[in-house]
Computed example of a mutant assay.
Amino acid sequence: MNSIELFAGAGGLGMGLHQAGFHPVRVVEWDRYCCDTLTENKRRGIKAMAGWNVTHGDVRAVDFSSYEGKLQLISGGPPCQPFSLGGKHRAHDDVRDMFPQAIRAVRQARPKAFIFENVKGLTRASFRNYYEYVRLQLEHPTIVARPDESWNEHLARLEGHHTSGSRTDLHYRVVTRVLNAANFGVPQRRERVVFVGLRDDLNVTWSFPTETHSLEGLLWDQTYGNYWDRHRVSRRGQLMSPRAIDRAKRIHIKPDSLPWRTVRDAIHDLPDLESLDGPPAGVLNHRFQPGARSYPGHTGSPLDEPAKTLKAGVHGVPGGENMLARPDGSVRYFSVRESARLQTFPDNFLFHGSWSETMRQLGNAVPVMLAQAVGESVAKHLTAAA
């Protein structure tokens, strides 16, 4: 199934969707370091990227009309800095917001479906009108903002069209949900809002895939199961928070879901960097990064829980989420390879740039496994409707 990947970043969303059966005929990304990462891994023969046609440039310069009738999917993570909700601001002309470009791509190419993702913060109450504005534009991509129209005037017109019952133009059935990657087997508590739309004429009924992993599953495994034996770690001295202990005591039947995967699950077989004189042979992007320290609000990700959400960092400095917090209270920064494991990138995937630059790429990425889970569900329904 042919697709286009926009705002590709380091390729996590695109790789997961490839594994779900979608094959990008074009991949667009403006960041040079991300493009270097994409093209290098294509050159190195990463299977999921074999046919990627990577365009290094501004998506605003791309005309998608030539793809009309040729695509099953458009996907991506549009950069989004919500515009001011006051005044006569022209939302469609805000250079900080790339959702209008994603919507333009849908309008021009008319794919059977789309998958777009963004930060959970987009669903905050203070951004509620913006969130609704994005959703209605995705449902009705041909209702375009007029040159002299403010965003709230455009929103009102979209609402009027949406409630009119008219569906003669291009229309998508759109569902959105905040997904926690940990609930789909990713060793990281990473919440993203996902927009999925299926073209109305396909008459497809769809819902988000069922979660497969849970905190209750992890608590059961650590309290009654073989988590500690599996890792050859003594239960003695392993700390659980009072809240976790209380919750575990209330679990009387083994959950049907699998346990959340932890940092230890993800990185236990990688060489210990602090015991080596240099980077280990045969392990890509696995170097010790000095300088980690703990202070309030910067305490690291516990070894025996899913990692906190990896962040891109501020001014080139990743935050406390990008540190490993050991049971003895010591901390160190995750290596790039460890962070890639937490984002479920394959071990043969090579990241380009300095440590801070590659951590930025990873902090902005979509976990490959999460993308695959959503993509497989969409692909299944599109195949059934064909």
Rank of each mutant, 00 (worst) to 15 (best):
N226L: 10
L303F: 07
A312G: 14
K254Q: 07
G319Q: 09
F334P: 01
L273M: 04
R250K: 15
K249H: 12
K254C: 02
D272T: 12
T262Y: 04
P259T: 00
W260N: 01
S275F: 09
P306G: 03
F334N: 00
D272N: 11
N322C: 10
N322H: 04
R247T: 13
L239A: 14
K254L: 01
D229L: 04
P255C: 00
K249I: 12
V283N: 15
D246P: 04
K311M: 15
V263G: 00
K311V: 14
L239Y: 15
A312S: 10
S301P: 02
G316H: 05
S301F: 01
P306M: 02
D328K: 13
L273R: 02
R326H: 14
D221K: 05
S275T: 13
V233Y: 01
P271H: 08
A281W: 08
H252A: 11
D246G: 09
G329L: 15
I245S: 15
N285V: 02
D269Q: 14
V317S: 12
E321R: 09
L276W: 01
L273A: 03
N285M: 05
P280G: 13
I245P: 15
D272Q: 13
R261Y: 06
H298A: 10
E305T: 11
F288W: 07
I267E: 07
D265I: 07
T223E: 07
I251M: 04
W228P: 02
H315F: 09
D265G: 03
M240H: 11
R235K: 08
D246K: 15
R230D: 05
P255G: 01
R287S: 09
R230Y: 09
K308G: 12
R243E: 15
G329P: 11
L276D: 01
K254F: 01
R230T: 10
R287A: 05
G329K: 13
F334Y: 03
L310W: 02
G297L: 12
Y333M: 05
R235D: 06
